[in-house]
Amino acid sequence: MSCKVGIPRALLYYKYFPMWKAFLEKLGAEIIVSEDTNQKLILQGASLVVSDTCLPVKVFIGHVLSLSDKCDKILIPVVRSTSEKVYNCSRFLALPDLAKAVVPGVTPILEIEFDYSRGKRYLYRQIYSLGKHFTINPFKIKAAAEYAWETHQRYHKITTEQHLTRVEAIDLLCKGKSIEIKEMGNDGLTIGIAGHPYVLHDEQVSHNLIKRLKAAGVNILTPEMAPETPDSNGNGHTRFAGLAKNYWESEEDVVGAGDWYTRIKVDGIIGIMAFACGPDSMMMSLVQRQAHSANIPFMSLTVEEHTAEAGVVTRIEAFLDMIYRAKRRNQQCV
């Protein structure tokens, strides 16, 4: 019987799911993805961690809990760095240990650590030690890893070239759902959304932000659609302080995306952040400043487990109205 591996539909799922799925399925595992986020799951997760923990981690813990009796093992990878000296937020580094400490009767956890800064050999060792759980044949593991990497690149390519969101791309790649390619109309508004994928693509967390914008006839841009990794550190400190281009692995989703949107002059930027998110408390203020200096309307939405849906709806409507009216007035003037 094949081993059932659970993957929580939270945090890194949005960035790496196709890769993990490809790797594990190649090795003969059966993948169980946790249910869509719902309010009960969020509150259950929140009740297990201290209250100033960020919302996405509470959601993550909720997903781990919901997988408890559905699988043999849970995959919780740790992504420490994805390029030289660019690290992930502190919370990501402790996920397996956190789950072990707070989730009662947690399913055995499969770990793998991605740390670019420690070089290729470390990566290979990590891949091998994960693969070992499924096969003793190193060649099979190697083939699976290569296939997984290929899948990941295809995933990345789909989002940037076809302007698909991560969720749409996952549907296309992993479920074979076809996606209607939308026309990028010239008449409508284009709104850029800055934020972490696990906030803006989780419909429960974002209160259907993307769906609502689409329903309002708006063209949306999300960080993963950026043509190349934007450089978010345009200032001269880099060389002096020996800093890497980015500070956080997720910086391109927020500051980088904000930078891209201001360069291509979108009609408005929405920054969506989760309550108590450490990096966003700083990065969002930079996006706001970028937008402000480029004269682009900016709205920040902070979501937490008790955010009222009605408030979000009102604010989105008001923001769009504001932009429409300003645009119409400008056109009349011209």
Partner: peptide, 18 residues
């Protein structure tokens, strides 16, 4: 400043802007 993980190394970017 520093690299990675905690907010401390990022302070200066935001402080300078402010």
């Amino acid at each position: 400043t520093g690299h990675g993980t905690c907010r401390m190394g990022y302070y200066f970017k935001v402080q300078e802007q402010i």
